[in-house]
Amino acid sequence: MAVIFDFAVQGAQMLMVLLLAPLLTGLVRKVKARLLRRRGPPLIQPYRDLARLLRKEVVLADNASWLFRVIPYVVFAATWVAAALVPTFQSGLLFSWSADLIAIIALLGSARFFLALAGLDVGTSFGGIGSSREMMIASLAEPAMLMTVFTLALIAGSTQLSTVAAFMTSNEVGLRVSLGLALFALTMVAIAENARIPVDNPATHLELTMVHEAMVLEYSGRHLALIDLSSELKLLLYVSLIGCVFLPWGMAPSGASVQALAIGFAAYLVKLAIGAFLLAVFETAIAKMRVFRVPEFLGAALMLGLLATLFLFVSRSL
C-alpha cells in the first residue's frame, strides 16, 4: 500500500512539473510585461502555443536526417526525467536515489549535446552559430555548476538532492560565506543555461547574438512544441533546484502525511512565484550583453564556485 502511494506521489511529481512548466514561463512573461507597463499575454498563453504547435504539421527541411526527427523526443525525455528528479514539494521520493545532482546535470548535458547536433543537421549557418555558441557557454557553465555542487556536497556530505535538502532544513547549517557564493554562482549559471537576458534573449528570433533560438530555428510543429516545452521544463528545474537547496522550508519529508504534502505543494508554488518574479525583475533591469562578454560572466560564476569550495575549509559557519 505504502509503495503504491509512493509511486503515486512520484507520478504526481512527474506530471506536476510537466503541467507547471508552461505556467512558470507564462508568469515570467506576464510580470516582465507588467514591469514594462504592457498588459502582456495571459498566463495560459504558453499552453495555447504548445497546443497549437502540437496540432500543426511539421515542415521538415529537405536534407534533415532521422536524427533531426528523433532529437526533440530525446531532449524532452532527458529534461523531463531530470526535472522530475529534483525534489519539489516532497523530498526523498521513490526514485530520487536513481540519480544524484551530478547525474541530473549530466542529463541536462545530454539534452544540450543532442540539441547542438540538431543545430548542425540541416546545414545552415544559423544552426551552426547557435550550436557553437551554446557549446562555448556550456563549457564554462557546466564546471561552474559542478563547483556549486561540490560546495553543497561538501557541506551536506552528499550529492543526493534529498539529503542535501534535508540537511539544509536542519539547524546545523547556519549562514556561511560559501553558501552565499554558491547561491550567486548557481543563479548566474541558471541564467546562462536557460538562455535568459543578459546571456541570451528568449524573446527574439532575429538577433545576431542569439544562441538557443538560432539552434532550434529549423524546427516546427510538434518538434518545436517539444523543444519549447523542454526549455520551459529546464527553467522550472533550475527554479526548483535553487528552491530545494537554498529555500528548503515547507518541503514535506519522505513518508509525510497528505496534509504535509499539501503544505509542501503550497510552499513550492510560492517559491516558483518568487523565482519568476525575481527573474522578471532582473531581466527587465539589465541589458543583453555581447556574446563574447558571456565568458567573463560565466568565468566569474566559475571563480565564485571555486571560491565557495575553498572557503569551506577556512571559514566557519555563523
Binding site: 502540437l54 496540432r55 500543426k56 504539421e57 511539421v58 515542415v59 521538415l60 527541411a61 529537405d62 536534407n63 548542425l120 540541416v122 546545414g123 545552415t124 549557418s125 544559423f126 544552426g127 551552426g128 552559430i129 550550436s131 557553437s132 528570433h205 532575429l206 530555428l217 529549423e218 516546427s220 510543429g221 510538434r222
Partner: peptide, 23 residues
C-alpha cells in the same frame, strides 16, 4: 498530429544553396 511535409530549409528566409555556407 503526425503530419509531415518536406520543404527547403528555412534558415530565417535566407536561401543558401551552397554547402560552403555551412558552419
Amino acid at each position: 498530429s503526425d503530419k509531415l511535409r518536406r520543404a527547403p530549409a528555412w534558415d530565417c528566409g535566407y536561401p543558401d544553396a551552397s554547402p560552403a555556407t555551412q558552419y
